[in-house]
Nucleic acid binder design. Structure first.
Length: 811
RNA sequence: GCCCGCGUGGCGGAAUUGGCAGACGCACAGGACUUAAAAUCCUGAGUUCGCGAGAACGUAUCGGUUCAAAUCCGAUCGCGGGCACCA
């Protein structure tokens, strides 16, 4: 088969018939299949794209053949740092390189033969898209979900730029491996923490991989504990957060984070110099230093004392950077006897250690951090673990000094980026009016083209006077724009909504359109987005719902992660490993269908694995064998004779056919593509075997071959169209109904049973499928092998598993 | 350190969710066709022992539950991923 020719032929015909266009008028139930859109960093599709999009398209095609009105759009996540770095290196403008890359990728995606609805395409770097990204920002701002604050961010001193969290790997810059430092900058944040609880509980309703849900759960990190108020002798009071309030009588000192607002206020004049030096030291610590949990604890005494709220004892107040300013209250009560970190710190600084928890039954060595029996805690002595915590928390609450409190590890989402290639933040700063949002009617805030890319990495926008200078929308006086752009994850947090109405220039999307298509029924993409994109998108959906723009809670009902295709050496494909396999040469040699089919057959879809090319030859051979067989069967004339045989051979063929249908239907639904194709191979073997008979039921054979082609259609769409045409099928194979299994054909007269004696297989035998337990037992006992094996022993028990085995327990 | 997942032939991987381990393929061996090779077709094969019918062993290791365990439970080893001073 000339693959090139038939690929082109059918792609053109599908295009002409607008096969991929979502039919808004259709009565059929909608089905939204979404693959994560691509980032146009390289010019070409790599194996990862193919592995994501090829099999996922087969799934979409399968749903289409099942009668769903399928919506499967595609687009580009087109803003981002790589394009800008490329510009700094080569001088090619990000807009130009991005557009060139997109054009190439579009062409390759079309050549893949996937049924993408290109009429809904979005590119996040286009004005008609980022205008609405800015609009989203403004809605969040109005709702109080976008706010600006000074915060420590990741700063790479060599690139002289702020980095996103995801661009810091193990404390160093992913680009230049320079240790990242923290720097305080005033930044925009989205208040995702307002949704922490709902983002957590919502997971229970989702059909997502457990692993991914767990990652989100851990990332959100809900913790139930207690806040306790401490009063300094100087009168200042502050709260600490603890999950172990049962140890509160063991507190021997308290610790504030160096960034705590009271840190300086609580410092006595004698300690001033030491404290200032420490705050400075802590601010300078690089991320790798801070990341290390084995790092020796450091800290400084403030000179002040606090009063223990329950014992009235006087305890010293310390500053230490093992306490995080951004979690809980930024202060902790230290119980060195029952916390490893406090223990290490207390040992180093010679602070008292008071034991208040005892292990049940045994003597313990400190620090003892598990739950135990409370001792030396007045009325609470003898209580254990949770019981003690409840009682103590209630007591604290009664005293008006705090009480139970829930905290989350999740932090607000920092969305400012000191970069050019992104959506400008639609905010103006006016000396008169302060922070002023750009009015919606003035959107988009256009990203200027004529900027200079500086080798020092400084933001080109901040230097662009024409961009920066504007007038205040409120008072009309000169004002300055925000020089930053939005994190690209903001763009990708709502693209699935834009797809539903991508040409709308009055709104980001029409509510009716979104409600008709959303939520996404099946979302397919990489697992690396578990705690970023997938969390942000859920947040956006919930925020938009609360603002009245949507009517559902979760954007992605079902989520499937494809695995990773590794290089032939088993390592991740990368330039540094020198093991990159390009799809292009394989597609050229074997065709798009064979390539896709190999990706589906050679791996367990969610696992992935190392590439090897012997597999693709095998799959290509399979397609040749299919073609040969179909050609032969297509050539058979249907004789006039109406008396076609229907005996054992025909029954066996029908069984093979309907077995394949039923299994493939299940397998495709489950993204178990490798087994689906194995079943196709078996069916082909059965067809070839039947064709080897002298007397044939030609209509049955032809029908079986037609079903075979339709079963193959989602997985090898071009070849299948060609074969369908060869068999004289009407219309596109892609538009036929997916074959349905006939349960009657799946029942054979006889089933093979394994017959066991004392759980060991003695013989396998064919027994009537309709036989009940008693019949089976009798039939088995009548077998000569069995009676011989039993001998004089008696049968004590007989276990029958219908359709599988009979196990005789004898003794 | 903590959390999660995984471990099956020479290889990629199956196993109706506790019921015949190794589907389907790759690679391999033997045969047919061919002057020969390639291609194609047929046959074989978990491992070990045996000429043989056959027997024993076998899903990382050890132990347990069960008539029955790759599957459930406990411990150990190994691999992968995520989080990382979150009090």
């Amino acid at each position: 088969m000339d693959m090139k020719r038939i690929e082109k032929k059918w792609q053109q015909q599908w295009e002409r018939a607008k096969l991929a266009h979502f039919d808004k008028k259709s009565e059929a139930p909608k089905f939204y299949v979404l693959e994560m859109f691509s980032y146009p960093s390289g010019a070409k599709l790599h194996i990862g794209h193919w592995y994501n999009y090829g099999p996922a398209d087969s799934y979409a095609r399968f749903k289409r053949m099942q009668g769903y009105n399928v919506f499967q759009p595609m687009g580009f996540d087109a803003f981002g740092l790589p394009a800008e770095n490329y510009a700094i290196k080569t001088g090619v403008h990000p807009k130009d390189s991005t557009e060139t890359n997109i054009a190439t990728m579009e062409e390759q995606l079309r050549a893949m033969g996937a049924l993408f609805d290109w009429s809904a395409e979005v590119k996040t770097c286009n004005e008609n898209y980022y205008r609405w990204t800015q609009w989203m920002f403004l809605q969040l701002y109005k709702k109080g979900l976008a706010y600006r604050k000074e915060a420590p961010v990741n700063w790479c001193p060599s690139c002289r730029t702020v980095l996103a969290n995801e661009q810091v790997e193990g404390g160093v810059c992913e680009r230049c491996s320079t240790p990242v430092v923290r720097k305080n900058l005033t930044q925009w944040f989205f208040k995702i923490t307002d949704y922490a609880e709902e983002l957590l509980t919502g997971l229970d309703t989702l059909d997502w991989p457990e692993k991914t849900k767990n990652m989100q759960r851990n990332w959100i990190g809900k913790s139930t504990g207690c806040e306790i108020e401490f009063k300094a002798e100087s009168g200042e009071s502050f709260r600490v957060y603890t999950t172990r309030c049962d140890t509160v009588f063991g507190v021997t000192y308290v610790v504030l984070a160096p960034e705590h607002p009271l840190a300086r206020k609580l410092t006595t004049p004698e300690q001033r110099d030491a404290v200032e030096a420490y705050i400075d030291y802590a601010a300078r610590a690089s991320e790798i230093e801070r990341l290390s949990s084995t790092r020796e604890k450091t800290g400084v005494f403030t000179g002040s004392y606090a009063i223990h709220p329950l014992t009235g004892k006087r305890i010293p107040i310390y500053l230490a950077d093992y306490v995080l300013a951004s979690y809980g209250t930024g202060a902790v009560m230290a119980v060195p006897a029952h916390d490893e970190r406090d223990f290490a710190f207390a040992t180093k600084y010679n602070l008292p250690i008071v034991k208040v928890i005892e292990k049940k039954g045994g003597e313990t060595k400190l620090p003892f951090c598990e739950d135990g029996i409370v001792r030396g805690s007045v009325d609470f002595d003898g209580l254990f673990g949770e019981e003690a915590r409840d009682a103590i928390a209630a007591h604290i609450s009664k005293l008006g000094k705090g009480g139970k409190k829930i905290n989350y590890r999740l932090r607000d989402w920092l969305v400012s980026r000191q970069r050019y290639w992104g959506a400008p933040i639609p905010i103006v700063y006016c000396d008169n009016c302060g922070t002023v949002p750009v009015p919606e009617k003035d959107l988009p805030v256009r990203l200027p083209y004529d900027v200079e890319f500086r080798p020092d990495g400084k933001s080109p926008l901040a230097k662009h006077e024409k961009f920066m200078n504007t007038v205040c929308p409120v008072c009309g006086r000169p004002a300055r724009r925000d020089p930053d752009t939005l994190d690209t994850f903001v763009c990708s947090s709502w693209y699935y909504l834009r797809y539903t109405d991508s040409h709308n220039d009055k709104a980001p999307f029409d509510r009716e359109a979104a409600d008709r298509l959303m939520p996404v029924d099946t979302y397919v993409g990489g697992a690396e987005h578990a705690c970023m994109h997938l969390l942000y998108a859920r947040f956006f959906t919930k925020a938009l719902r609360d603002m009245g723009y949507l009517d559902f809670d979760e954007p992605f009902k079902r989520l499937v992660h494809q695995g990773v295709i590794l290089g032939p050496d088993g390592n991740r494909m990368s330039k540094s490993h020198g093991n990159i396999v390009s799809p292009d040469e394989y597609v050229k040699e074997y065709g798009s269908d064979a390539f896709r089919l190999y990706l589906m057959f050679g791996f367990s879809y969610t696992e992935g694995g190392p590439w090897n090319d012997s597999g693709i030859k095998a799959v290509s051979k399979f397609l040749e064998r299919v073609e040969k067989t179909v050609q032969k069967v297509a050539g058979y004339k249907v004789p006039r004779d109406p008396a076609f045989p229907y005996g054992q051979a025909e029954k066996a063929l029908d069984y093979a056919r309907h077995f394949a249908i039923s299994r493939i239907t299940k397998d495709l639904e489950a993204f178990s593509f490798n087994t689906a194709i194995a079943r196709l191979m078996e069916l082909l073997n059965a067809i070839v075997a039947y064709d080897g008979n002298d007397a044939k039921n030609i209509p049955l054979l032809k029908d079986t071959v037609k079903d075979f082609i339709l079963l193959l259609t989602p997985c090898a769409p071009h070849v299948s169209e060609e074969l369908w045409e060869m068999m004289g099928g009407r219309g596109f194979a892609a538009e036929q109904d997916f074959p349905k299994a006939d349960p009657e054909k799946l029942v054979l007269d006889e089933t093979e049973y394994a017959v066991q004696i004392n759980s060991k297989i003695v013989v396998r035998t064919m027994l009537p499928s309709s036989a009940g337990e008693e019949e089976l037992r009798a039939a088995v006992l009548a077998l000569p092998e069995i009676s011989a094996a039993i001998g004089t022993r008696t049968v004590r028990k007989c276990i029958v598993v219908k359709g599988r085995l009979v196990n005789l327990i004898v003794g």
